[in-house]
Amino acid sequence: MIKVTLPTHLRTLAQVTGPVDLMVEEPVTQRAILDALETAYPMLRGTIRDTVTKERRPFIRYFACGEDLSHEPADAAVPVEVAEGKQPFRIIGALAGG
């Protein structure tokens, strides 16, 4: 099981209170995780990545294992700890000062 954490607003939208567990077939990639997430929670379509291009929205970041994976290719394998469910794949709303 892959663990995914969502920012507060998306937890509310998805009606979940904590990390979500997803079955993701190997190879576990960003794209595979997000596909599984949007299948399980269709109300999240378009809120993390564009519905057509599947590009990450500009103010969304992907963190895992202390690394910023936002600029990694969508089809690159995620860290082993994420693929084994030991570490969460974290979807973050980017900082906005003001």
């Binding site: 920012p7 607003h9 998306l10 939208l13 109300m43 379509r45 378009g46 809120t47 993390i48 519905t51 929205r57 103010f59 969304i60 709303g93 980017a94 906005a96």
Partner: peptide
């Protein structure tokens, strides 16, 4: 809508007691 998360359309069938996201495409 949100600068971070884009567009969502919500629909209520019970005068706003509960809401359901519908298509945002």
């Amino acid at each position: 809508s949100s600068g971070w998360f884009g567009q969502v359309i919500q629909r209520s069938d019970d005068a706003g007691k509960t809401w359901e996201p519908v298509s945002n495409e």
